[in-house]
């Protein structure tokens, strides 16, 4: 029996300059959903509404059945992985990951063991003392994934986190996230520009345009089998 992890109820959000975002959406627990669309179509706005970085002008944001429209980002059961600046440059990998457990970095012996285990889980055993500048781009994102593991939040928002890593490394990282999400039954929203990434990762895809969700269905159907005109133009240019 699956519950609804993310529910956007009659959301309206307007920004100066004429941008208007509307959404009414339900995503069940454990689902993996890709968000696609051109720049400015509202993908990041959708993530920000879920994460609590944006507050809607009207409508409700319910997470795991609780109305969290006005809740602070920290109070919400979601973690986010950004494309860049995920880590604090002056803290080593251990401390950066440890922030997921304690935002003041007060770690008990158990916590410290958990941090070591999480870093090992993402393949960074032995690199705990490295500063972000001493890690590769892929390794930096692994530290951020370890931090998310330690936070234990049930939902994960990914804002093109692997877009700058190159195709092979990007696929590897997506696979790692998929593995972790499956093991913990996490709900994942992934913003991507790459249809292959969406096909490989998400069973469901939302396509946004002009602040609205214009296509919503199984990924293969939305992108390949029966793409709407607007999706076809985005993917193939005609």
């Amino acid at each position: 029996m699956t519950t609804t992890a993310i529910r956007l109820e009659n959301i309206v959000l307007e920004r100066p300059g004429g941008f208007r975002f509307v959404a009414d959406l339900a995503i069940p627990s454990g689902a993996r959903v890709a968000l696609m669309g051109a720049s400015g179509s509202g993908k990041s706005t959708l993530l920000d509404l879920v994460a609590g970085f944006e507050t809607p002008d009207s409508g409700r944001v319910c997470l795991i059945g609780v109305d969290m429209t006005a809740a602070s980002p920290a109070a919400r059961p979601v973690a986010m992985l950004f494309q860049q600046d995920n880590l604090f440059g002056h803290l080593d990998a251990f401390a950066n990951a440890g922030l997921g457990r304690s935002p003041g970095l007060r770690l008990s012996a158990t916590d410290r063991a958990d941090v070591m285990a999480a870093l090992a889980r993402v393949g960074l055993a032995g690199k705990e003392k490295r500063l972000p500048a001493q890690l590769s781009g892929g390794e930096r994102q692994r530290v951020a994934i370890a931090r998310i593991l330690l936070g234990g939040k049930p939902a994960l928002l990914l804002d093109e986190p692997f877009a700058s890593l190159g195709p092979a490394l990007g696929r590897e990282m997506t696979a790692l996230v998929a593995e972790i999400a499956a093991a913990r039954a996490m709900t994942v929203l992934l913003v991507t520009h790459d249809p292959d990434e969406a096909l490989g990762f998400a069973e469901r895809t939302l396509f946004l345009d002009g602040g609205r969700i214009v296509a919503d269905g199984p990924t293969r159907e939305v992108l390949v089998d029966a793409p709407a005109d607007i999706v076809r133009r985005y993917l193939h240019g005609h």
């Binding site: 979601v78 950004f82 604090f88 922030l99």
Partner: peptide
């Protein structure tokens, strides 16, 4: 970086 402020908010930093 703006993302550091976002991260701070999400992690619940005082």
């Amino acid at each position: 970086p703006a993302n550091h402020y976002r991260l701070a908010a999400q992690l619940g930093m005082g």
